[in-house]
Amino acid sequence: MSIESISKIVTELKAFNHQIPSVSPEIELSVCIPARNEAQTIWKTLTALANQLSGDKAVSTQLYEVLVLCNHCDDHTVELCKLFQELNPAFPFYYYITTNPVINNVGAARRVLMDLASERLKDTGFIIMTDADTIADKNWLESFLKLQSEPIDLVCGQITPDMKGLNAEAKKNLFENRHYLDLVSRLESEIYPQQSDPWPRHSHNSGPNMAIRNSVYKNIGGIPPIACLEDIALYQKVISSGYAIKHAMEPKVTTSCRSSSRVQGGFGSQIQNWSASKTENVEGYDKLRERFTAFDEIEQYYSQTSEELRNSIGHRLKIQKQMLLSLIENHDSSNSLVIYLEKFLKDHAPWNAAHPDISITEAIEELENHFSVFSQTSKIYSSARSELSSLKRFE
């Protein structure tokens, strides 16, 4: 899918959507929501955004806007958007409609919508991503407004899954996965710390709750218009380009756990696998420690080259000297090399032979033993695990 075709669609949408007002110089946040047949959920999504608070007062409607792209909808999504707009005339909400065949996946839809927002927003403002089946916390926008003053280029907010309708097995696996990722994030903060993203932090970095500074969005060439994991690709582009990210404890959203996956490889597919007791092995403590230590050494190496550091990196990651030298030559920053290695190591046979993945239950036990404390996350996880085990016995 070419960027030229997307630019053409953006121009067409601007021309045919006369309801959209001119840009206000006061707008700091532009919320982008792609929607395809979301009649069951979008009303709640919009209601949460229309009732945002700053303290005990409503967030000023001069500071934000909400843009929805109704993409190939053949249910009542468009009619609901129109009705919501009519019933809430003070709410800065505007929707676009398209049936253009070029916009044939969620990545393309996000790209069109975020490009539209980028043209309407000042460079210092945030383009915020969320979904039409996601409910924002009442202080969601206020949290982003506060983060604007920090030297942060990409904000990843917390995401709470709405587990209604999931079977006990899916709930158990979801709890395990989230707890494991939180422990991994904590270990990463300990071994490979980032100034802009200190502990405590979370492990979420996906489309229902993410914001990018407009100047950065322009500089990296926008979000990739790909069929799946476009949010992760954007996250990786930001890091590779050397910009500052933050996994902020605020803002928060709740998103659905629908198991009828709309995208192969997306969260819905993961829910399907968990519901059917299909789980994958993960990195254990030793493997994570070696990887994060190597990444920290890579950051040091780019600050001051050292043969000793380079040898240590190669030894830890099981990469031969000439290959490592070639990789360093092809990546002009440590961030770029680290992002590349995160993907490369998944299929790097010597690395995986030295550190085979293990079950997630074993990995959690190893990480908890390392920290030697029963953190609040651990308490929640253990309590939930016990409760779910009891529920499963009565199913």
Rank of each mutant, 00 (worst) to 15 (best):
L325Q: 11
P151V: 09
S333A: 07
N219I: 08
E387N: 12
P208W: 04
D74T: 13
L288S: 10
A248K: 01
I97R: 07
E283W: 12
E230I: 01
D332A: 14
K57D: 15
W199R: 03
W274G: 07
R201D: 11
N88I: 09
D123T: 09
S277C: 13
A50H: 10
K237C: 12
F295M: 12
E280H: 05
R291W: 08
N104V: 04
L29E: 09
M323P: 09
N104S: 15
I380F: 14
N369E: 14
I135T: 14
Q376H: 03
L309N: 10
E188T: 05
C70K: 02
L49T: 06
Y302N: 07
V106H: 02
F374Q: 12
I135M: 12
S334V: 05
T255F: 07
A384H: 03
I159H: 04
K321A: 05
F292V: 02
D231H: 06
E280F: 08
I358D: 03
L80G: 04
K321S: 10
I360K: 01
L325D: 15
R111E: 09
V263C: 03
G265R: 02
I364Y: 04
L324F: 01
N369M: 14
V253D: 04
I212M: 07
L13E: 03
G157T: 02
F16Y: 10
E38S: 10
R178E: 14
Q19L: 09
K122G: 13
S7N: 12
T255L: 00
T41R: 02
L29Y: 02
L187E: 10
I9T: 10
L391W: 01
I3G: 04
D182G: 09
F144T: 13
R201M: 13
L147T: 09
S22V: 12
T160W: 00
K379H: 10
T361C: 10
L154D: 13
